[in-house]
C-alpha cells in the first residue's frame, strides 16, 4: 500500500470568466519513507499539489488516498484530524504565530490536539535540543533569525510525529548557508523514516532527493521514478 495515491486529480481556479487549470489529470504514487523533490517553473502547480497533499485544499475531481483511505470524502473535521496526526507542513514564509514564543509555537499542534501540558513540555524540550533551539525557547519569532525561525517551523511540523512532511520552498527565504542547514534537518527526518515532499526551485537541492518530479502547466512532465521519462 502506497502512502499517497493520486488518481485523475484536477484543480481549476476560477478567475473571473477564465478558469486556470492549476492541476490537470494528475496521477501519482508515493511510497512511505520516500524523499521527493517537486520542481518546475513558477505557476506550474507545485504549491497547489502540495496543498492538496496536505489537505489544505480540495481537488475538483479525482481521488486522493492517504494510507489507503479515500481522503476527499472526509468531513472538514475528519480532515483536520488527519492533518493533526499524519501531516506536518513547512512553509516558505514560516507562518509562526508572532505573539507566541519559540517553545509555544512548537507546542501549538499539541496544544490544539489537546495533549496534556506535561507531555507537551517534555516533547518540546526534546525538540528544542534536537533542533539546536534550546537557548531560544522563550524568544518570539521577531527575535529569531530566518534560519532559527524555519527550524522552529520544522520542529513544529514534526512535533506530532507525522508520517508525511510537506515543505513548500522551505529555503526560499533563507541564504545559501542556512538553507543548507534546513535541508540537512529535513533529510535527517527522512532518514528516520518520515516521508518527505519538498517543493524547490534550486536544481542542486532537487538533485539531492532520491526522486524528482517536474511540473509544467499543471501536468507532471517528468518523474525520475518512471523509466521512460514520461508520465504513465
Amino acid at each position: 500500500m502506497a502512502l499517497i495515491e493520486l488518481q485523475g486529480i484536477e484543480r481549476t481556479f476560477q478567475l473571473g470568466d477564465a478558469s486556470v487549470h492549476a492541476l490537470t489529470a494528475l496521477d501519482l504514487r508515493i511510497e512511505a519513507g520516500e524523499y521527493v523533490a517537486v520542481m518546475g517553473p513558477s505557476g506550474s502547480g507545485k504549491s497547489t499539489l502540495l496543498n492538496l497533499l496536505g489537505l489544505l485544499d480540495r481537488p475538483n475531481a479525482g481521488t486522493y488516498r492517504l494510507e489507503g483511505r479515500d481522503i476527499t470524502t472526509l468531513s472538514p473535521d475528519e480532515q483536520a484530524r488527519v492533518r493533526s496526526q499524519r501531516i506536518g507542513f513547512v512553509f516558505q514564509s514560516f507562518h509562526l504565530v508572532p505573539r507566541l514564543t519559540a517553545a509555544e509555537n512548537i507546542a501549538l499542534p499539541m496544544t490544539l490536539a489537546g495533549i496534556p501540558q506535561k507531555e507537551r513540555n517534555a516533547r518540546v524540550a526534546r525538540a528544542l535540543v534536537n533542533f539546536g533551539l534550546d537557548k531560544r525557547a522563550d524568544h518570539r519569532p521577531d527575535q529569531l533569525s530566518g534560519g532559527q525561525r524555519q527550524r522552529v517551523a520544522i520542529a513544529r511540523a514534526t512535533i506530532m510525529q507525522p508520517a508525511l512532511i510537506l515543505a513548500d520552498e522551505p529555503t526560499g527565504n533563507l541564504d545559501r548557508h542556512t538553507g543548507e542547514e534546513v535541508v540537512n534537518l529535513l533529510e535527517a527526518l527522512n532518514a528516520s523514516g518520515v516521508t518527505l515532499v519538498v517543493v524547490t526551485h534550486d536544481q542542486g537541492m532537487g538533485a539531492r532527493a532520491r526522486r524528482q518530479l517536474v511540473m509544467e502547466d499543471g501536468r507532471l512532465k517528468h518523474d525520475s521514478a518512471t523509466p521512460h521519462n514520461a508520465p504513465r
Binding site: D77, R83, S84, V97, L108, L112
Partner: peptide
Amino acid sequence: TGEIGLLKALGAPART
C-alpha cells in the same frame, strides 16, 4: 484570517 488558516493547517477543527 491568516492565523485561523494556520491553526487549521496545524489540525485545529472548526470548533476549536
